[in-house]
Design a protein around this nucleic acid. Structure first.
Lengths: 223, 223
DNA sequence: AAAAGTCCTTGATATAAATCAAACGATTAG
DNA sequence: CTAATCGTTTGATTTATATCAAGGACTTTT
């Protein structure tokens, strides 16, 4: 993963990865309360992470795809504090955290990489707080779709089309909205000709319009 | 900070801290776009961190007090992505991140500590997402007050009384609510005899009632 | 001590999203 | 092939919070 490594270093790095693990759709990779031993790098598949209240309310805290790391929540208390559920059949690299720490001490470039991964997650969550605290439904969904398609595009998929791996309810939970609101907002964006939606299939017809909804300033024409 | 160190180790650890820095009330320790060089350990005083939208909307992402670390947001892109503002005169230890990384490689206990600090922040933000996505105004304010007084108590202050360092507007921004809603919710809790409020002074009269609002399940009596 | 500036409270009204409800479409099971 | 289930859409209504507005309290300045 981290660039700037010599070939010899790369071999050493393989030591981080102990094993691989298959996770079937609907299964949990780990759940709240599980002992923390490892981080997981997603090889294939798609996950959601979520936290649950004592009274049953659930909040999806993220959707993760190939190349992304999950399990960082477990470090602080040696226990996981969220659930990681596969939304499609998946395979992960199990990276025992003891190995990660040991090799981090040996390879500054790996150490730096681990720190960046954690910092990126903190910054992402700052952005989520902004979204949940300040944005309207349409802005949240626009931001969500733009983020998702951008990440998929970075993995070689289309920059305009995608198949959603999650339900309207899961999108709603992530965005702090109810599933009906997600459905209505999809319909609104579709009526406006900005996206095309058919169930899980979404095509972005007018990316600039979508960006304008997400962030009105960034697309303003100079008067 | 981290325990489990020999005395010799402690001396080494002092090397992490290059200098101290005073920050007057209202001043910024760092702001969005600043080059990232250091983490900051708060010695005295009280900070808020916030992110701002292009169109001016502001989201307070956290309130930090003595002993807490700020600046983690800067690691991922070598630039800070939020503002850190002192809400009262403050002093911080400047810890150049290069030193932190170098000594982390030498001292596993420090490495582990750094990882836990970052993981703790991720878990905190997960909790904030739950709050912003799922909770009603009264629940959010109850959770906020309980968290604040608990952290103050851990620093030797009262477990029932506190002086708020932030305005209603800043609390509202943090909790995804408007200042009027914060004010009304304070009044409601006060009318119910659960807290006593006089401007920035807050006294928790019925901590169990407050916990019940935050989490109805945890205080249920068995029928 | 008066004036000015913040910050806070409270009331009246508006509104975005939630809730309740029903029907529809797609997929799976029998 | 039909029934059942799950996820989705859409409509009608409610509700929590936002917005708008005014006055009050405290703090700082002069």
């Amino acid at each position: 993963m981290p660039i700037g490594l010599e070939v010899d270093d790369m071999k050493k790095l393989d030591e981080v990865v102990a094993t691989r693990r298959q996770v079937k759709q609907g299964q949990m990779l780990f759940s709240n309360g599980d002992a923390f031993t490892s981080l997981y790098a997603i090889r294939t598949g798609f996950f959601k992470t979520c936290v649950a209240n004592e009274d049953g309310r659930e909040q999806v805290t993220g959707f993760q795809m190939a190349g992304e790391i999950i399990g960082l929540d477990g470090i602080v208390s040696d226990q996981h504090s969220c659930n990681a559920v596969a939304l499609e059949d998946a395979e992960v690299c199990v990276m025992p955290f003891a190995n990660v720490e040991e090799l981090s001490r040996e390879f500054p470039v790996l150490q730096r990489h681990v720190h960046k991964v954690m910092s990126r997650e903190i910054v992402r969550e700052n952005g989520m707080m902004m979204m949940l605290g300040n944005m309207r439904a349409e802005e949240r969904l626009a931001a969500f779709l733009l983020n998702l398609v951008q990440r998929l595009h970075a993995r070689g998929f289309s920059q305009s089309e995608m198949i959603l791996r999650m339900t309207r309810e899961e999108i709603g939970s992530y965005l702090g909205l109810k599933l009906e609101t997600i459905s209505r907002t999809f319909s609104k964006l579709s009526d406006d000709g900005i996206i095309e939606v058919k169930q899980r299939y979404v095509k972005i017809l007018a990316p600039d319009e979508l960006k304008k909804i997400f962030n009105p300033q960034s697309c303003q024409t100079v008067i």
